[in-house]
Design a protein around this nucleic acid. Structure first.
Lengths: 337, 337
DNA sequence: ACCCAACGCACAATCGTTTGTGCCAATTTG
DNA sequence: CAAATTGGCACAAACGATTGTGCGTTGGGT
């Protein structure tokens, strides 16, 4: 900028103001403005964002912290967030925590050290201390998909409880009474909500809840596989499986395949979370679709509004409706069960 | 840092050197070092990376530019890149170009303005001018998956030609002679390479190449669907389809389903690129697996080595082998064809 | 007793912007 | 005609680090 200023024979402050669009506010003559812009364009000059950020204490950058980018739900979140953010001039620094608490911590401080303006976080859900610390340092932060009841932080999520309720009801009305629940990370908010919905559905139909029919500990394919195997190897095995995650449903399908069990003839299956290939699976999978794009748009919108107005949004929970997508993986149980 | 220096009663230069790990090199007494570190820890102080970057002309940040993060191949790339980068202290700024040239340009300048240290780019492949501009400005840059022959830029990719050759040979040895090719972006490097492999396989078996059997223009599900529909509605329809992309294969499956055609009884199908659910599709899909993780590791490794040593890597093309994953979507053609 | 290292640290310039303030001419106002 | 605007711009202090250089104190060697 200094060189530019020298070339046009003006001071850097003039150049800065012109390039910052504040030329008129500071009564820079139209002639000077033109000259500045012309020479800037000629040299392909663009202002150094680093220096600008340092001075302005604002980086126009958002940290996005998610557990697994190769999970289709989160990759859709990431894509949508990146898109809405870029449109408003924000860049995204991406961190994948692999659902590991240590990585989450590291990534969080990496982001804060880089002075991101705000954070979009989908935390593991075990401890909330490091998130609380951010909250107390007044870092603009909105939680996505997962959160903690005890923290007054804005939060956007699908209606996990109702989604799971709907799915379970769907199974029950097809005649299923023994329904296994393949869970993800036990203490994570989506999981407890989905479990709540499942239990409410059971209760509404006066069906007993058997904790031993809740299996699993991670939102991963292998975990779904193991849990399904464990449930299905019992003599009085479930006639239906409710998978709390998309990958879990995939694992469950594989487990059925390996045990020579047909879906849906031997066991019905329903999976939380929708994906483009669900309809092409064998059989096409009945799923509970989450409005991933809407969630991402809302979360990033809340955050950017916050950053730009300076006012934190209402701290309430923002819940978006799910949608039961009927396909062929659910049918009434066989009679011999 | 100034406050910290005042509190310990030393100068900022001392604090900077201690915190930068250069305390010993500058003969800062052990006692002072301890004091500095202790008070820094007490206040949870960490150096401002912005200021540091400005001074050092180095941001420890890599720009990752990919066409579609919700495509499983690229999401795996992104995940691996992020992981290997974080381990070496780099952050990733993610941009999703949606295979749109305008967005690609914008995103590229957004990244350069933010002074990323280097770029990992998977360009659209139509024009190479903006990439060339980066190259000429000496921006450390390695291309992933896609590239341009005319630019001496380091490049990492799967062996697309050989992978497609293997896949096509697989179809031919099963007796197929009329094999449709569902392509992605026509001028993109992976696509032309795959097409080359396909043609070489045909030529090796003295089969004619019919350009009208090459359809499609994007790496998208809908495009695969349309192309497959167009090919299959012909009277002398292909007995086998080679999909140049994973999403294209999905689209082709859907098209077959909609036309009441069985895969593989009526038409065999093979798809480039592997994904976790391919084995659970109806039917389990034979695919050509790309070593996505290895590609990502190699690309990011090359780039970071470059950044740290200052020496550009060999400009050659780095090709990693694909792997044909045999499943049930290919079988000999029915006789009536 | 004198000199010279080795010690241990402080100064100040620099990275590239933004912005509050001040200054001088030209023009308008009373 | 003096006073008050106003137009058009330049100065210089931040923002928060890094680093080449310089400067006073010790202690040991002769």
């Amino acid at each position: 900028m200094k060189d530019l200023a020298r070339e046009v024979g003006l001071s850097v402050s003039v150049v800065s103001r012109v390039l910052g669009g504040k030329g008129d506010d500071f009564r820079i003559s139209e002639q000077s403005q033109q000259r500045v812009r012309a020479t800037a364009a000629k040299h392909g000059f663009s202002v150094n964002q680093l220096a600008r950020s340092l001075r302005l204490q604002q980086t126009k950058t958002i940290g996005l912290l998610i557990p697994d980018i190769s999970n289709s739900f989160f990759s859709l979140i990431a894509r949508t967030v990146e898109k809405t953010a870029r449109r408003r001039g924000y860049a995204i620094i991406l961190c994948d925590t692999e659902d590991d608490e240590t990585i989450e911590q590291e990534a969080l401080s990496l982001l804060v050290d880089r002075a991101v303006d705000g954070l979009l976080v989908s935390p593991i859900g075990k401890g909330s201390d490091h998130i609380r610390a951010l909250y107390e340092r007044n870092v603009p932060l909105v939680l996505v998909d997962r959160f903690f009841d005890d923290l007054p932080i804005p939060y956007v999520t699908a209606n996990n409880e109702k989604g799971a309720y709907d799915g379970t009801i769907h199974l029950i009305t097809h005649g299923h009474r023994r329904i296994g629940f393949l869970q993800g990370i036990p203490d994570s908010k989506p999981n407890v909500e989905r479990l709540r919905g499942y239990r409410r559905a059971l209760a509404d139909h006066a069906l007993p809840f058997d904790p031993s029919w809740v299996r699993g500990s991670k939102f991963e394919e292998a975990d779904g596989y193991d849990s399904a195997q464990a449930l299905l190897k019992q003599t009085a095995r479930p006639t239906a499986l409710f998978a709390s995650s998309s990958l879990g449903a995939l694992g469950a399908m594989r487990a059925c395949l390996d045990r020579g069990l047909s879906v849906p003839d031997d066991v019905s299956l329903i999976g939380f979370d929708e994906y483009p290939y669900a309809r092409l699976l064998a059989p096409p999978l009945t799923t509970i679709a989450q409005p991933a794009q809407a969630i991402a748009e809302m979360a990033s919108g809340l955050l950017m509004d916050w950053l730009e107005t300076g006012n934190a949004p209402a701290m309430g929970v923002n819940v978006l409706d799910t949608n039961l997508v009927l396909r062929d993986s659910v049918k009434p149980p066989a009679n011999d069960h």
